[in-house]
Amino acid sequence: MNIWIPVFEERWEGNIPVTIIYKNSEKIHFNDGEMSKQALENIIEKNLN
């Protein structure tokens, strides 16, 4: 395992794709695996606007 992976997310096992979204240096979303465009847009609208 790469030693830097847990720095981003403790639950991340290094799988790709992965989506990690930060706002003001605070992690607000983690998704390990595929994600639909609509799901990503919903998270952005909910958390970043």
Score class of each variant (00 low, 15 high):
residue 1 M to Q: 11
residue 2 N to V: 11
residue 2 N to H: 08
residue 3 I to E: 07
residue 3 I to C: 00
residue 4 W to P: 00
residue 6 P to Q: 05
residue 6 P to D: 06
residue 6 P to Y: 08
residue 7 V to T: 06
residue 7 V to Y: 08
residue 7 V to H: 03
residue 8 F to E: 10
residue 8 F to A: 12
residue 8 F to D: 03
residue 8 F to S: 13
residue 8 F to R: 06
residue 8 F to L: 15
residue 9 E to V: 03
residue 10 E to M: 10
residue 10 E to Y: 12
residue 10 E to F: 02
residue 12 W to V: 10
residue 12 W to I: 06
residue 13 E to Y: 00
residue 13 E to N: 15
residue 13 E to C: 01
residue 13 E to F: 06
residue 13 E to L: 15
residue 14 G to D: 09
residue 17 P to L: 11
residue 18 V to W: 00
residue 18 V to T: 15
residue 18 V to N: 05
residue 18 V to Y: 02
residue 19 T to H: 13
residue 19 T to K: 12
residue 20 I to T: 05
residue 20 I to V: 14
residue 21 I to P: 02
residue 21 I to C: 12
residue 22 Y to E: 10
residue 22 Y to W: 15
residue 23 K to M: 09
residue 23 K to T: 01
residue 23 K to P: 05
residue 23 K to S: 06
residue 23 K to W: 15
residue 23 K to Y: 13
residue 24 N to I: 01
residue 25 S to M: 11
residue 25 S to D: 14
residue 26 E to G: 02
residue 26 E to D: 08
residue 26 E to K: 15
residue 27 K to I: 03
residue 27 K to N: 08
residue 27 K to Y: 09
residue 28 I to F: 12
residue 28 I to Y: 08
residue 28 I to P: 04
residue 29 H to M: 09
residue 30 F to L: 12
residue 30 F to N: 05
residue 30 F to A: 07
residue 30 F to K: 00
residue 31 N to K: 15
residue 31 N to F: 04
residue 31 N to T: 14
residue 32 D to M: 09
residue 32 D to I: 05
residue 33 G to H: 09
residue 34 E to W: 05
residue 34 E to K: 07
residue 35 M to G: 00
residue 35 M to V: 11
residue 35 M to N: 02
residue 36 S to Q: 14
residue 37 K to L: 11
residue 37 K to S: 07
residue 38 Q to K: 14
residue 38 Q to I: 10
residue 39 A to H: 08
residue 39 A to R: 13
residue 40 L to T: 01
residue 40 L to N: 01
residue 41 E to Q: 13
residue 42 N to W: 00
residue 42 N to A: 12
residue 44 I to Q: 06
residue 46 K to N: 14
residue 46 K to G: 08
residue 46 K to Y: 03
residue 48 L to D: 07
residue 49 N to Q: 07
residue 49 N to I: 10
